[in-house]
Design a protein around this nucleic acid. Structure first.
Length: 485
DNA sequence: TACTGCTTGAT
DNA sequence: TCAAGCAGT
């Protein structure tokens, strides 16, 4: 039996990194950095009951960990990687390093808090000399889900805007000092990155995971995309969204940093208050989603409105597969699904259109779509992804009414008016004229052949007729509507 | 952050 | 003939 080294209350600190893969505005790191530092990341990979990361998120995590390791290594601090239950891995590293302080930022999901509770209990039991710090304040959210509730977005956000102003972001620690290193897993052995090279290739071209990549993305957004954000953010053919969601998801940047950067851009006249307020509202939906997750830990599994438990979803693997591959015959839907597959991301407007299409036109259970997004989106988080699916499906809190059924033709014509977005992701339709680009089945045969399009061969005929699907969805809704009263 | 079908009134 | 407004889904 090996015995523990003597307790060292003044020993080094262990910073347990979680979904906070950054050095700046990191309250726990600010405390941990006052001592020689051991940086630790634990891949629980389901060990704590958490949902295993999807494929795209695993790719992102690998890249983000590499970026964090490089930033730490530049200051002489190795990043220690361990795999397994945090309640075993964290105390083990504390013991091996003779640490006197454990620091970590509190998580914002019930499962994360359960994991940290288990860690804290294990430390208190077997390493009572180790102090535990959660840093000086919360940083993953603007608001405190324990102190605010609500099921309706507008009053929720109004309250948050009035009651919570994020404090100025903390700078990265001036300097870090490494403690003696201990064993680490090799990142490559975790096999986080997809073996299909074409997938990783598309992700590589689209993203720069890590804190530096997040800062550059924010700077680029403030330099261009934020201007006109209030209206142009709905245009998938333009570049007026922030694309910061995956950086936020892994804690490479904080909402407080975004908040203050956006307000500063307004103060310096680079952005209007309308644009900034719209941008902050998008952060608000993220806050709202985390609030819901804390109210409803089974957000990804259970309808918030129980009457939807009786909804007559269709089982149709072929339709689901056509949707996943971007072969529905509706150009705006197919463009979005292909953008998702090729880049791990989809424009928000198009997310609503494709989600509505799956749930209402194809009558597929929203959980099937949520699972696909979870696997393929680099930004899928345990709150926003299920909350947004429930919103679209109509079964969520403050949800869009079920009878709000997007018309994929009108949505395409309204938000991709020149067809640039469709032509980029559905190149087989490139030569169709704008007048029929979003509804190729209405094009005269001569127009189709001139564009080299053969419906059913070079591009699918519509999987379902819109008017028929709309009527069918409303009829399905009628079967559960009576139960609401 | 909806669509559809219908009416009304301008042309 | 159609834009605009409205109600119902």
């Amino acid at each position: 039996m090996p015995h523990d080294p003597p307790a060292q209350p003044d020993g080094p600190s262990v910073m347990w990194f979680r979904t906070d893969l950054r050095l700046a505005d990191n309250p726990a790191l600010a405390v941990a950095a006052e001592r020689p530092l051991v940086a630790l990341y634990v891949l629980d990979d389901g060990a704590n009951g958490a949902r295993p990361l999807g494929g795209a998120a695993r790719w992102w995590l690998a890249r983000s960990l590499r970026a964090l390791a490089a930033a730490l290594a530049a200051q002489g601090v190795p990043l220690i990687l361990r795999r397994g239950a945090a309640a075993e891995a964290v105390p083990a590293v504390l013991r091996e390093t003779g640490a006197g302080l454990l620091a970590f930022n509190p998580g914002e999901t019930p499962i994360d808090r359960a994991a940290e509770g288990a860690v804290t209990a294990a430390v208190a039991k077997s390493l009572p000399h180790v102090a535990v710090s959660h840093g000086v304040r919360r940083s993953a959210l603007i608001h405190d889900p324990a102190s605010v509730g609500g099921r309706v977005f507008t009053p929720f956000w109004k309250h948050i805007r009035a009651a919570f102003v994020p404090p100025p972001p903390l700078p990265a620690p001036d300097r870090l000092a490494g403690a003696a290193a201990v064993r680490s897993d090799a990142l490559n052995d975790w096999e986080l990155e997809p073996t299909a090279p074409d997938w990783a290739g598309g992700l590589d071209e689209s993203w720069a995971p890590g804190e530096a990549g997040a800062a550059k993305r924010l700077a680029d957004f403030l330099d261009g995309g934020l201007t006109g954000y209030a209206t142009l953010r709905d245009r998938p053919d333009l570049d007026h969204v922030s694309r910061l969601s995956p950086h936020l998801r892994f804690g490479e940047i904080t909402p407080a940093q975004l908040w203050h950067a956006a307000r500063a851009a307004m103060a310096s006249g680079r952005a209007t208050s309308l644009d900034v307020e719209k941008f902050l509202t998008e952060l608000g939906w993220r806050e709202f989603s985390y609030n819901l997750l804390n109210q409803r830990p089974l957000l990804a599994e259970a309808n918030i409105q129980p009457r939807f438990d009786a909804f007559p979803w269709r089982q149709d693997e072929a339709s689901l597969a056509a949707w996943q591959r971007g072969l529905t015959g509706y150009p705006i839907v197919d463009a979005g699904m292909r953008q998702l597959w090729q880049t791990g991301w989809m424009h928000n407007r198009v997310r609503m259109v494709v989600a509505s299409f799956l749930v209402k036109h194809l009558l597929q259970d929203w959980r099937a779509g949520e699972a696909w997004f979870w696997d393929t989106l680099v930004d899928a988080d345990p709150a926003s992804n299920p909350a947004s699916w429930q919103w679209v499906a109509g079964c969520g809190a403050d949800a869009a009414p079920y009878f709000r059924i997007f018309n994929p033709v009108l949505q395409g014509e309204k938000f991709d008016p020149h067809g640039d977005y469709v032509r980029r992701w559905v190149p087989e339709l490139t030569d169709l004229p704008n007048a029929v680009l979003h509804r190729p089945w209405t094009a005269p045969p001569g127009v189709l052949s001139a564009a080299g399009v053969t419906l059913g061969e070079s591009y699918p005929a519509p999987l379902v007729d819109h008017a028929h699907a709309r009527a069918r969805a409303l009829a399905a809704f009628q079967t559960i509507k009576a139960k609401a009263a």
